[in-house]
Simulated assay, not measured.
Amino acid sequence: MSDWRPGSTRAALQARGEIFALLRHFFAQKQVLEVDTPLLSRFGVTDPSIEPLRVLPSSAEASSMFLQSSPEFAMKRLLAAGSGPIYQLGKAFRDGEIGAKHNPEFTLLEWYRPGFTLQQLMSEVGELVCECLDRDRWDIISYRALFEEVLSVDPWTVTVAQLKELAAKQLDIGQLELDHDGWLDLLMSHVLEPVLAHQGLQFVCDYPPSQAALARCSVRNGQTVAERFELYVDGIELANGYRELLDAKELMARAASDNERRQLSGQEPRVLDSRLVDAMLEGLPDCSGVALGVDRLLMAKLGADRLSAVMPFDWTRA
């Protein structure tokens, strides 16, 4: 069959349109403003786990730009300028992310709530996702409790050698060598996520501080944790939320650490977005924010096993 045809059915296209309308209605009811920020920027993210798509100019004198992996930085500039609560529903891009649950171009819903705690944001995310999927409950477990219950290890105190030994008992790791967070991520994706597949809507919160990304850190029960969560729906990661970092100096320190890790792994360092730094120096309001994969939300709603079944044209047909 020719690849000019869409990969999704007419029914999937209709469900896609309906869920877009539901999302916009949800935020209109809550008086959260829809915004529209640029897809192209002179800056890409420093996070080593994310590679943005680079756009090369036709003129040798012009600088290359990046298709944005998230509208986060531009939205935070709006927050610092006094926008109030905002959301964006649109396209995002990541290089090299191809598979049943990944596509280089995807639809992302991202929103920010000034004054919200992480717990309040989790409740709002749970409310929205339950409305979209016709479900009626969600559960919350800490990152530490999940590892302790399933693997009987404390991710804060377990050593790299112990994690490697544990992974070898569960998986075929060959000659693989990873750092502490690398082993934790491997166990999460290959051992814990299959467990979460049987637990419906499950929030995992309070991550190790080394996995804070742009979340704030705080001390709970004598232990430093990153104030972030991920939402899994039937074992599929759907949303990633933070109580947002406000300290511009800490932002710059984390970006420098990211670039050290990028260089160690052979990745190109990235320049931190100077406009975001300026906005944070001006003053980002106390807020919590979350990004939610809309295509994966549709997968869960329709019981699909791949993104291409819920997108008009995935990357193979683009």
Score class of each variant (00 low, 15 high):
residue 172 D to N: 14
residue 34 E to W: 08
residue 57 P to Q: 13
residue 245 L to N: 10
residue 281 L to V: 10
residue 197 A to M: 01
residue 167 A to F: 01
residue 292 L to F: 03
residue 253 A to T: 12
residue 127 E to Q: 14
residue 151 L to K: 02
residue 33 L to D: 03
residue 240 N to A: 07
residue 89 L to F: 04
residue 236 I to Y: 11
residue 244 E to W: 01
residue 70 S to K: 00
residue 105 E to A: 14
residue 35 V to F: 02
residue 318 A to K: 06
residue 308 S to T: 06
residue 303 G to T: 08
residue 311 M to L: 13
residue 41 S to P: 02
residue 100 A to P: 09
residue 137 R to M: 09
residue 212 A to M: 10
residue 3 D to Q: 13
residue 17 G to Y: 02
residue 51 E to L: 14
residue 279 A to M: 00
residue 267 Q to C: 03
residue 217 C to H: 01
residue 234 D to Y: 02
residue 40 L to P: 12
residue 246 L to V: 11
residue 108 L to K: 05
residue 27 F to G: 06
residue 259 N to L: 06
residue 297 L to E: 04
residue 241 G to C: 09
residue 98 I to R: 15
residue 23 L to D: 05
residue 54 R to C: 12
residue 50 I to Q: 08
residue 284 L to G: 01
residue 36 D to C: 03
residue 247 D to F: 10
residue 108 L to H: 02
residue 241 G to R: 07
residue 10 R to N: 08
residue 139 D to M: 13
residue 264 L to S: 13
residue 272 L to T: 04
residue 270 R to G: 00
residue 194 P to E: 06
residue 219 V to D: 07
residue 140 I to K: 11
residue 120 Q to W: 00
residue 259 N to S: 02
residue 69 S to N: 11
residue 190 H to L: 10
residue 313 F to V: 04
residue 3 D to V: 15
residue 168 A to T: 08
residue 314 D to N: 09
residue 173 I to T: 15
residue 20 F to W: 07
residue 85 P to G: 04
residue 282 E to F: 15
residue 86 I to N: 01
residue 270 R to D: 02
residue 12 A to W: 03
residue 300 A to P: 07
residue 19 I to D: 12
residue 18 E to L: 15
residue 140 I to F: 01
residue 303 G to W: 05
residue 265 S to D: 01
residue 306 R to Q: 13
residue 59 S to M: 11
residue 267 Q to W: 05
residue 56 L to P: 01
residue 268 E to T: 15
residue 109 L to D: 00
residue 259 N to K: 10
residue 15 A to R: 10
residue 133 L to T: 08
residue 266 G to S: 06
residue 181 D to L: 11
residue 273 D to Y: 03
residue 222 G to W: 10
residue 248 A to F: 12
residue 192 L to S: 07
residue 119 Q to F: 09
residue 317 R to C: 05
residue 144 R to I: 01
residue 86 I to S: 06
residue 30 K to D: 08
residue 2 S to D: 12
residue 138 W to L: 07
residue 82 G to Q: 08
residue 222 G to H: 05
residue 130 C to E: 11
residue 312 P to V: 08
residue 274 S to Q: 14
residue 22 L to H: 13
residue 106 F to M: 05
residue 14 Q to V: 11
residue 294 V to I: 11
residue 154 D to Q: 04
residue 309 A to F: 00
residue 26 F to K: 02
residue 268 E to R: 14
residue 180 H to C: 10
residue 276 L to W: 07
residue 183 W to Y: 07
residue 50 I to E: 02
residue 174 G to C: 08
residue 205 C to A: 15
residue 198 H to N: 11
residue 19 I to T: 15
residue 157 T to R: 10
residue 316 T to G: 00
residue 246 L to T: 14
residue 136 D to R: 13
residue 203 F to E: 07
residue 88 Q to S: 04
residue 21 A to Q: 11
residue 187 L to F: 08
residue 199 Q to C: 12
residue 237 E to V: 00
residue 316 T to S: 13
residue 66 F to K: 02
residue 105 E to C: 09
residue 205 C to K: 15
residue 130 C to I: 02
residue 174 G to M: 05
residue 102 H to V: 04
residue 252 M to V: 13
residue 299 M to A: 03
residue 93 F to R: 03
residue 213 A to R: 00
residue 36 D to N: 09
residue 92 A to R: 10
residue 161 A to Y: 13
residue 283 G to L: 12
residue 63 S to Q: 14
residue 290 V to Y: 10
residue 199 Q to M: 11
residue 239 A to D: 10
residue 138 W to M: 09
residue 186 L to G: 05
residue 242 Y to H: 12
residue 107 T to L: 10
residue 77 R to G: 07
residue 181 D to P: 01
residue 17 G to F: 03
residue 120 Q to P: 06
